[in-house]
Design a protein around this nucleic acid. Structure first.
Lengths: 131, 131, 131, 131
DNA sequence: GTGGTCTAGACCACT
DNA sequence: GTGGTCTAGACCACC
């Protein structure tokens, strides 16, 4: 029997590939401190089963994260959050990860000639979860 | 020889394809009213030369914009901003174009456990052009 | 018709995987300056055909080299030696790539209590191609 | 409680598996004559404890060495260096064990277009323990 | 049990 | 033409 629940959620029809969605989610979970150094990651097979995707797709995501140094392979055991990585990155580091998207949003607002205050209002609304 | 300058700027190494970058830029320039109805678009060949990209890539971008109704093909002359299209879209329409990116930024802030106020501060800074 | 020759040579039964063998060979060819910045790499399909292996295996090797920054993807065209990378690395850089293997060889000689001069003689012989 | 010291040193993150690292170390210690015929090997459990690895991994290494004839199982006592095996192998045998690594180093030097003399100089340096 | 590698083949996106 | 992604399934190595 396999675990049918997964900490990940993917949208198969999305623009960016499944493996990339997984990488991004893991990265944020670690950087935000929700996953601590040494914590085991869900196994490739369990994740593949739970999300109904191919194990290789999960494996590819994990391989990239290993290259990045965020997670480590423990042979015969599984993958774990890298010990070398400090738990819960400081606010500054987390803002750095958020920045690129906000930079793009700023560029777009400018091209659309939307006033900063109006762009800020929309963002505020979305941050509160109001659709 | 052709014009080596172009109103467009593309980044060949970017995540989204060149044709998409072109489409987005044209759309924003028109919607923001910087390009008015009847204005001629830079020719496919000039644009391709200036940006050192394949003419078919530019052509594909224009074709999509034509389908969208934003620009019109004037036989023997080139492409022009569609007359049917109201110049300078209302604010609401422009905010709709900005929304997807801000939605993504909101989702990322949440996953990174960044407080709304801090995310807003960063966005405000970027909107002011302060790097 | 496809190219049946390839600049690569692989040994399918080797200890390290095929994709790794490819990565190492490309890396050395570039670092040694035999492949210059901007040079196109053999296409994934051609290489796969010539070596009678799966295209994905070649693709995986290229993806790793791209991550490493040694080669660049030119969308719709193929892969090329990265322009950012200086052609023909200086001797020092090349020695750095050789060093790990020689360090291992030194450690093994020590454990086997082989005199330095005798280890050097063997290495000299092998460098001359004498089996 | 068991001995927390071990004559072995392993690197868990290395390319080659732990059991292989153990096999190679035992082999060199015996062939070099540092471990004599009849000497007892550290017990599987002690070694596993000291290195914080799975006992089965140590057991596998010992099993391979037994197959190789280098060590013998003494029922109820443990493993010992094989009596049948001549202590301190002749130089030729020890060079044979060193050869594969040097062959690889020679191939790499050639691909990197490093002159034999420069490769030899580096190896000489490393043999002297100068980092 | 764990992940890694490779294959064969399909489909997609880009130029 | 180019590479990218995913699938289904096999086999291997390691612990």
């Amino acid at each position: 029997m396999t675990d049918l629940f997964s900490p990940f959620s993917i949208s198969p029809g999305s623009a960016d590939p499944i493996y990339r969605q997984l990488v991004d989610q893991v990265r944020r979970l670690i950087v935000a401190g929700q996953w601590q150094a040494g914590d085991a990651l869900p196994s490739v097979r369990d994740t593949a089963n739970a999300l109904a995707i191919n194990p290789m797709t999960v494996s590819k995501a994990y391989a990239l994260l290993e290259t990045e140094g965020l997670i480590e392979r423990q042979r015969g055991v599984g993958m774990a959050v890298s010990a070398a990585h400090r738990n819960t990155q400081p606010l500054k580091a987390r803002l750095t990860l958020l920045r690129p998207t906000l930079e793009r949003a700023a560029a777009e607002a400018k091209q659309l000639e939307i006033e900063p205050q109006q762009a800020l209002d929309l963002y505020k609304q979305l941050l509160k979860g109001r659709p």
